[in-house]
């Protein structure tokens, strides 16, 4: 039996950079040498999800979704486009193990904490875990809250709050939601793409990595999903799926 790893993500027709983290994580996983082959497939780019297994030699393939939320894409689009029937499927001659998204794994909390430290967070700092959120899918917020709770439970910061870009509690009310002088915003996003690079900084009127406002400091971390430690989360998800 040969083992393959397939990282699946959204991709973009408009933003060339949005799939870069997938390829960076794939390169890291190749370096680890735990799989006979590693491939990336996305909904919007090539290879596409429905052709993701074409010519892929390993007969046992673990599919890890690089999404932060366990919502529409992970529960509907990816399984539909790839012909998956659940967490274990047989598709076009392959045994396919479909894991939960990286955003749902407890190990991701360590990456969030790391991102916060990299942006200057200390014990007295408030950390805001910022998710996309959507009023159209109630399940979308669940992972974000769970990861925030894990970060809070790790006890490294006095305040940990959860805010969203596209639902309540909205990121615009962030400074009213915490008491600390310094707030580090950690975007729980896959890539430093359109939202992290443009939408959020504009909405929050950020000046850059650090913004001073009314005697307080707002620090903005880079996206959690681009951190090299995400490869550890991918490896853990794949290892857990091995025994299915």
């Amino acid at each position: 039996m040969s083992r393959g790893l397939l990282l699946v993500g959204h991709g973009s027709h408009l933003d060339a950079a949005s799939s870069a983290p997938f390829h960076a994580h794939a390169a890291r996983m190749r370096e680890r040498g735990e799989f006979d082959a590693v491939r990336v497939a996305t909904w919007k780019e090539e290879p596409s999800l429905p052709r993701a297994l074409d010519g892929f030699r390993p007969d046992d393939v673990t599919v890890v979704p690089i999404f932060m939320s366990n919502g529409y894409f992970t529960s509907e689009v990816v399984p539909r486009e790839m012909g998956l029937m659940g967490r274990l499927s047989h598709v076009h001659g392959h045994t396919v193990r479909y894991t939960a998204p990286v955003g749902s794994h407890p190990a991701l909390a360590r990456v969030i904490v790391q991102r916060a430290h990299e942006a200057g967070a200390t014990r007295n700092t408030a950390v805001a875990v910022l998710g996309h959120g959507t009023p159209r899918n109630a399940k979308s917020e669940a992972n974000i809250y769970e990861q925030s709770e894990r970060v809070r439970a790790m006890g490294e910061f006095d305040e940990v709050v959860t805010v969203f870009m596209d639902q309540e509690p909205n990121m615009r009310g962030l400074l009213d939601a915490v008491v600390a002088e310094t707030v580090v915003v950690v975007p729980l996003f896959v890539a430093d793409g359109w939202h992290v690079g443009s939408t959020i900084p504009v909405e929050l009127a950020l000046d850059g990595p650090e913004t001073r406002r009314a005697g307080r400091r707002l620090r903005y971390a880079t996206a959690v999903g681009t951190h090299p430690m995400v490869a550890d989360v991918i490896a853990e998800l794949a290892e857990e799926a091995r025994s299915w």
């Binding site: 090539e46 290879p47 052709r51 074409d54 010519g55 076009h92």
Partner: peptide, 17 residues
């Protein structure tokens, strides 16, 4: 051209889905 060599081989052998 991702998957182009795979698809060309499968097309020529009549195995392309």
């Amino acid at each position: 051209y991702p998957l182009s060599t795979v698809h060309s081989r499968e097309w020529q052998s009549g195995e392309l889905r």
